[in-house]
Design a binder for these strands. Structure first.
Length: 271
DNA sequence: TCGGTTGTTATTGT
DNA sequence: GACAATAACAACCG
């Protein structure tokens, strides 16, 4: 799935395309998208004008109508929401027509994304929104350290745990660790106060930069189509490190790859 | 055919 | 209880 920056880009697009308007027509192409709520509830909500597009972590929702329905989207691995001339685009699971704008299409080749309808007032108290940790830009070094607590888990696992910090994904870990010279298996005990501050700063600036460089009407995933890889180390196993030219390597934990430079990111002595 | 893929969750084992 | 690994969800790509 897209990470924080990509979801924020989709949110901004929805704001431009959808807010202030109601869908005129709805096509549910894949009922499995809508869980656990009913297809009827989603269609009813879509018939009312949208008035706000919100994001927390990788979750995106739109509030609609005087009765304040909420439609909560999760794009998971391959979801995107695009603006199309027709609702027939490949991989479209749900399409809704905004008059004088076009068809908004939830496209999702892997079909792991979800859409949930939430009754008025339930959104911020709903799981998992209320379980999410703070946004990266709301954390400084000391507060990040506090959130890690005395955990013995790898820093990587903690950053990917949405309850600890919201919005961080697997790509961000590779890129930020490379930037800071952190080994993929580093543990909280091996970080000093300075490391924590640099880590929280690097996460914030990583997402801020992506927000600018990836801004577009349609998200482009590195692994799909001909989009070229804009990252320094992610998916670049075997290629020279941009900093020292040593061949980049890959290490996986729990089936999640971290790409890193063995020279720039040496293992640290146990603290 | 195999191994890889930007997410999350349930399950099993240590 | 904490942690770690794995599969599962489902499908595409090289």
């Amino acid at each position: 799935m897209p990470e924080l920056a990509e979801v924020e880009i989709v949110r901004r697009n929805l704001e431009r395309w959808w807010i202030g308007r109601a869908a005129q027509e709805v096509i549910v192409a894949d009922d499995d998208l809508i869980v656990p709520s009913s297809r009827e509830a989603v269609i009813t909500a879509l018939s009312e004008p949208a008035y706000a597009a919100m994001r927390r972590g990788k979750h995106l929702w739109v509030e609609l109508g005087p009765s304040r329905h909420a439609l909560l989207f999760h794009l998971r691995m391959t979801g995107k929401i695009t603006l199309e001339d027709t609702p027939q685009a490949r991989f479209t699971r749900l399409a809704w027509l905004i008059p004088e704008v076009g068809w908004l299409c939830f496209k999702d080749s892997r079909r792991l994304g979800t859409l949930e309808h939430l009754a008025p007032g339930l959104i911020t108290s709903s799981a998992p929104i209320n379980k999410l940790g703070p946004e990266p830009d709301a954390l400084d070094g000391p507060s990040l350290k506090l959130r890690f607590g005395r955990s013995a888990r790898r820093v990587k696992e903690l950053l990917l745990d949405q309850r600890v910090i919201a919005g961080v994904g697997n790509i961000a870990v590779s890129e930020v660790f490379w930037q800071l010279g952190l080994h993929p298996s580093v543990r909280p005990k091996q970080l000093d106060d300075d490391d924590y501050q640099r880590l929280s700063d690097a996460l914030t600036s990583h997402f801020a930069q992506l927000l600018v460089s990836e801004q577009a009407d349609e998200l482009h995933y590195v692994n799909q189509g001909k989009a070229q890889n804009p990252f320094m180390v992610y998916l670049r196993e075997g290629q020279p490190c941009p900093r020292c030219q040593a061949p980049l390597e890959r290490m996986t934990f729990g089936g999640r790859s971290t790409y890193y430079c063995p020279r720039c990111q040496p293992a640290r002595a146990p603290a």
